[in-house]
Design a protein around this nucleic acid. Structure first.
Length: 571
DNA sequence: GCCGTTTTCGGCCCGACTGTTTTCAGTCG
């Protein structure tokens, strides 16, 4: 997969053009880089199938950038980039990561002090050499030194599963202040993106200064980065940044829209506004000096002739076109998901008993769960062999009778071997209510072999769901590659569902692939993969992925009633 | 360099905050 490498080069070209005050190219390169980053298909594959014409179908990629991608595929580099880099040979990737250091400063640092790397920069700053430069005072120098430490610490984005509870805590505290009328986390948290760069909170407040004081002195705050009347920014001990912005009641909807993003969605929405002779900013929708809307998000979208949509859909992947035609899908609601179809107990590598899992799920309002301990091989997480599995089935039946108000399905997460065979005998699988197929080894097969392996597994009539489909671990391990068109077609043909694994570092299928799976007619299942009772709440994260992939209620297995679900499983 | 309900040419988002200035450039989102 070359996408991330190409995106990185495009980001850097954007920085170089900014250094030289080239107009408009930086935004074009940056936008293309962002979109390529989020692409599920390999650029090399797209090119192989349809040449530069196919590349130009990617939004933000025109003739010029398509040719640059072609160049990268053919000769492994982009000459334009090499030329820019030669003129200013600096470690842009790490230098730009330093807070407060942008392309203009980096260029000057190179020209005046020959600074190329973080190490060069640190040495110069420690020697006090930066203060001699125009616009560089002692404070800038100090901030740069701190920024370097931060970059060296390798703090990146935080998983949604960890950032969300934190953001909710901040929301709740602020909402409890007498001066705060309303506080809401916006940004990528509100869109439920799988990783979070920072926490963005918006508030309506009577005395902003007091609220800012409170925000900047919370126990989680490591350092105040900036503090003003309408906006403050802090760095938390966890390494994450958090922003608080205070807006007026009249502007709150426009602000919420603006700070929820994403950026490309907003750019597209502002273009729609311009087309209708409006101006849209974070304070409202304006015609001249007259405010046309701003109090609520709904009002802003409506005035622009665009259907309102949940934040999870706002990624500029076609939602605005559909909304303008009043044709948005009605995506699944969080409360329409009735149960959890993957979890582990102490029978394999889970921490709790079957009964404890059931009681905890019941408390969350679930109508049913599936106990799906590892089965197949001993060496994976205490996997059960046939005999133990039969014993566990009896145990689950007992538990199901014992608890009221929730049903428990007998399931197992079964290894799929190299050839695509399930590791448990068919006659035992036949006794289970629900069979999950999973890949736990041989990740490094070729795309063709992996596709064949999975398609073969789906042919097993007992396998109901293919779980954590790509095996990715966000930020740690890239998922393996498969031919999605082929796999989706096989899933439809064999009536096999594909899982959205809701575990914070998995969220696998990705929302991009959920979108494609659904378009192909594949049924989606959501499973938390809980290994303890406190993991059961991850169901919300999995549902968020379904929503970001535009899944409707009818697409999601867990939206079926218990009786309907049994019918599907016995198909 | 991209893009098209105003366009195949001529547009392209803009306000807050900081640190350095003594009126503003650079950065960020």
């Amino acid at each position: 997969m070359i996408n991330l490498q190409v995106a990185k080069i495009f980001y850097q070209i954007a920085e170089y053009y900014t250094m030289d005050d080239v107009a408009f190219k930086p935004q074009a390169y940056e936008r293309a880089a962002r979109l390529i980053e989020g692409l599920e298909d390999d650029l090399a594959d797209i090119y192989k199938d349809g040449g530069t014409k196919a590349l130009m179908k990617i939004p933000g990629v025109g003739q010029g950038l398509a040719e640059k991608i072609e160049e990268y595929i053919k000769i492994g580099k982009i000459k334009e980039y090499e030329k820019l880099k030669k003129a200013c040979p600096v470690d842009l990737e790490h230098l730009t990561a330093v807070q407060g250091l942008g392309p203009k400063s980096i260029k000057m640092l190179y020209q005046k002090l020959k600074i190329r790397t973080l190490a060069d920069l640190e040495k110069a700053a420690r020697a006090g050499k930066l203060t001699a430069l125009p616009r560089f005072g002692p404070k800038v120098q100090e901030n740069i030194l701190r920024g370097i430490q931060y970059v060296k610490g390798g703090q990146g984005r935080m998983l949604l599963g960890y950032a969300l509870p934190l953001a909710r805590k901040f929301e709740e505290r602020l909402n409890n202040l007498p001066d705060v009328e309303r506080a809401v986390a916006a940004g990528s948290i509100r869109r439920m993106k799988e990783t979070i760069g920072d926490i963005d909170i918006l508030a309506i407040a009577k005395r902003p200064a007091k609220v800012m004081d409170y925000f900047c002195s919370m126990t989680e705050v490591d350092r105040v980065l900036s503090k003003g009347q309408t906006r403050s920014s802090v760095r938390l001990h966890s390494g994450l940044d958090a922003d608080l912005r205070v807006l007026s009641q009249e502007s709150f909807g426009a602000g919420l829209q603006y700070f929820t993003g994403n950026k490309d969605h907003n750019v597209a929405l502002r273009a729609i506004a311009q087309g209708k002779k409006y101006k849209l900013n974070e304070y409202g929708l304006w015609r001249g000096k007259q405010m046309a809307a701003g109090r609520t998000e709904e009002e802003v979208y409506k005035k622009l002739g665009v259907q309102f949509m949940p934040p999870e859909m706002r990624e500029n992947t076609g939602e605005l076109d559909l909304a303008a035609k009043n044709k948005l899908p009605k995506i699944v609601n969080y409360d329409e998901v009735l149960g959890d179809l993957q979890m582990h107990s102490e029978w394999s590598d889970g921490a709790n008993t079957i009964l404890e899992m059931a009681e905890a799920a019941k408390k969350l309002g679930h109508q049913y769960i599936a106990i799906t301990d590892h089965a197949g091989r001993l060496y994976i997480a205490g996997g059960l062999k046939e005999k133990e599995l039969l014993k566990q089935m009896a145990e689950i039946e007992k538990a199901d009778k014992k608890v009221s108000g929730i049903r428990i399905l007998k399931g197992a997460e079964v290894d799929i071997d190299k050839e695509g065979k399930l590791h448990i005998e068919d006659k035992v699988l036949a006794k289970l209510d629900i069979v999950l197929g999973a890949i736990h080894d041989n990740f490094k097969m070729s795309k063709e072999a992996m596709t064949k392996r999975i398609c073969r597994a789906m042919q097993n009539q007992h396998m109901d769901i293919w779980v954590h489909p790509t095996g990715r671990l966000i930020g740690r391990r890239e998922g393996y590659e498969v031919d999605w068109d082929e796999v989706f077609a096989q899933a439809v043909k064999t009536n096999t569902a594909i899982e959205i694994n809701a575990y914070p570092e998995r969220l696998d299928l990705s929302w991009q692939n959920v979108k494609r799976a659904i378009a192909a007619g594949v049924k989606i299942s959501i499973g938390t993969d809980a290994h303890a009772t406190n993991h059961l709440s991850y169901l919300e994260l999995g549902t968020a992925v379904a929503r970001r992939g535009w899944a409707e209620k009818k697409d999601v297995l867990n939206c079926l009633s218990f009786e309907e679900l049994l019918k599907f499983l016995k198909r």
